[in-house]
């Protein structure tokens, strides 16, 4: 009989979204949680106020789907943003953002079923036969698998396999965007902006480690993505519409309305400016010491 029993370390299945790893209250996580919940409250408030239009369930379904995509992009942005801003603590937000994307996806699919009166035979039938719904279904199942394996306990149990499994977020993102694009009736601008941001993040990840810190590199990637977005938009219209792709390209040089490439350029410029300011600040601090 052993006299000494080593306490086995238990990993939590649920950990507080308000506390950091050391168990202390975290302002960053609390603010992040608030921002994650805000769109849901906003949609609910609009629903109650009757501002979701004639088919509120349908509108809420569309809105939650869009927010799922947005949080997916934010989740993918954590690693790049950590690096750009030398802000390593940001990693503690990644799980929350990923789970939020999964929650909005769950709401999105549930509202879709609600719209069909929870006739699950019909709903499941559609989800496995209509092409753009198949894409969404596979992405949803993948995202749920990642959400379920996001607990400390699952991370500990899966060990090295966890990273491999969670790299599935990239194909899931591709399927989600594909689904998003196919649900647009004619104007794909709404889907192009988050898609362009994601492409930028992925291209940054794919660059050589030594060039990742370079602001010039990041700026040239941004320019490349803006051009790809403009060409992609015109190409989509050339392939799938009867509209003149020249006019679609020309719209990028007009200011009557923000085109997708223009919106992306503004987003990129803002992010690059913030990074430059951050670098300048730390440089000044180092100099003054």
């Amino acid at each position: 009989m052993s006299t000494e029993q080593r306490p086995k370390r238990r990993h939590a299945v649920f950990s507080s979204p308000l506390k950091d790893r050391t168990g202390c209250f975290s302002w960053v996580k609390t603010i992040c949680l608030t921002l994650c919940v805000a769109p849901a409250l906003y949609i609910a408030a609009w629903w109650v106020a009757g501002r979701l239009g004639g088919r509120p369930i349908h509108q809420a379904m569309l809105d939650t789907g869009f927010w799922a995509i947005r949080f997916l992009v934010l989740c993918l942005a954590v690693t790049p943003v950590r690096s750009w801003f030398d802000w390593s603590r940001l990693i503690q937000l990644r799980r929350m953002l990923g789970l939020t994307a999964a929650f909005y996806t769950f709401a999105h699919v549930t509202l879709y079923a609600a719209q069909q009166g929870f006739d699950m035979g019909f709903v499941l039938g559609q989800m496995v036969t209509v092409f753009y719904l198949i894409l969404g279904t596979v992405a949803t199942l993948g995202l749920f698998a990642l959400a379920l394996t996001s607990t400390d306990a699952a991370i500990a149990r899966l060990g090295k396999k966890w990273i491999g499994l969670h790299r599935l977020i990239y194909p899931i993102a591709v399927l989600s965007f594909w689904h998003f694009f196919l649900t647009q009736k004619i104007d794909i601008g709404t889907a192009l902006v988050p898609a362009g941001l994601t492409l930028w993040l992925l291209l940054w990840r794919a660059s050589a480690a030594r060039s990742r810190r370079s602001l010039a590199r990041l700026a040239s990637l941004a320019m490349g993505v803006a051009v790809i977005t403009a060409l992609g938009e015109a190409g989509w219209y050339a392939l799938y519409s009867g509209l003149n792709p020249r006019l679609v390209l020309d719209a990028n040089f007009s200011f009557s309305r923000w085109s997708a490439a223009q919106q992306l350029t503004a987003d990129f410029a803002l992010i690059l400016l913030l990074i430059a300011m951050r670098r300048l600040l730390s440089f000044t601090i180092v100099q003054s010491r």
Binding site: G50, I57, Q115, Q116, G117
Partner: peptide
């Protein structure tokens, strides 16, 4: 109708 859409409208939908 508005009230039913809030809470119970969902239930009535059927194929």
């Amino acid at each position: 109708f508005g009230a039913s859409m809030l809470g119970f409208g969902v239930i009535n939908e059927a194929v």
